[in-house]
Amino acid sequence: MKIKVGFGFDVHQLKENHPFIIGGVNLEHHSGAYGHSDADVLLHAICDALLGAANLRDIGFHFKNTDPRWKGISSLILLQETVKLLHEKGYGIGNIDAMLCIEAPKINPHIPAMQQNIAEAAGISVEDISIKATTNEQMGFIGREEGVVAYAVCLIEKR
């Protein structure tokens, strides 16, 4: 059995009165992540980890931010498309471990819903998805609530 690991990273700026979607969950907050799609920083980092593990380049290669097909799209769809690409290369997902770095709002109450959304989109068990969150201790652009960062690692295995 061949196994591979992948690493993903994403960052989005926050804008006042903009929707804030993380892990497919719409969070109540005064500002939200801005981008071409729904700017779901967590799912973008996960997609990059999965694509990297399978040597399929990165999310920007497959879902260009200049392509109108992806404008405003749910990143859960991008994750589904990423999983299809993995399956075409004969890989399945072993597990995903992700970390959000965000000052506010609190993420912990939303983690079960995020795990469920990711599990459904990726076709894996909730037990195979770990999501954690931390603040930046009020330092830098994250601490000033100007942006949000996500990191993800994954394990994939040849079927």
Rank of each mutant, 00 (worst) to 15 (best):
G94Y: 13
M1T: 08
L76V: 15
S74I: 08
A54H: 00
I77V: 14
V83S: 02
K158T: 03
K64Y: 07
Q13I: 15
A49D: 04
V153Y: 10
R57H: 00
G143C: 14
G24C: 03
T135K: 11
E127K: 15
D40V: 02
D48T: 06
Q138F: 02
H30R: 06
G24K: 08
G143T: 13
L42S: 01
C154Y: 08
G8T: 15
S74D: 01
L42I: 05
L50D: 08
I102E: 05
G140W: 04
H36P: 04
G147A: 09
C47V: 09
P109W: 03
D128F: 13
I22M: 10
G60T: 07
E157H: 13
V83Y: 01
A122T: 07
H12R: 07
Y34M: 11
V149I: 11
L43I: 03
L56I: 11
I3F: 14
G52C: 14
R159W: 13
A113C: 11
A98G: 13
N55C: 11
P105A: 05
H110W: 13
E16Q: 12
I156N: 03
V126Y: 12
E145W: 11
N136Q: 02
K2G: 10
I142H: 00
P112D: 00
V5G: 10
C154V: 01
E28G: 05
E88A: 02
A122F: 03
D48Q: 04
E81L: 07
P112A: 00
A119T: 14
V5P: 12
N26K: 11
A152P: 02
I73W: 10
G52Q: 07
K132T: 11
E88V: 15
E28S: 03
E137S: 13
Q138V: 01
G52H: 07
G32H: 01
A119G: 14
A49R: 01
I59S: 09
A133L: 07
Q115S: 14
I131P: 14
Y34W: 07
F61W: 03
K15R: 14
N136F: 08
G24A: 06
I59L: 14
I118Y: 08
A49T: 04
I73F: 08
Q13Y: 14
I156W: 04
L51K: 06
I118D: 03
N136P: 15
I102L: 13
N95S: 00
I73H: 07
N117R: 10
N17L: 15
P19H: 15
E145S: 07
S130D: 12
L43Y: 08
L56D: 04
G147S: 13
F61R: 14
A122N: 04
F141K: 01
E120Q: 06
M1H: 09
I156R: 05
K64D: 05
D128K: 12
I46P: 07
V41F: 09
M139Y: 13
K106W: 15
P68L: 09
H62I: 05
A53N: 13
L86E: 00
A121Q: 06
E127S: 09
S130I: 14
V148I: 05
K64C: 10
A133E: 02
G90I: 06
A133F: 11
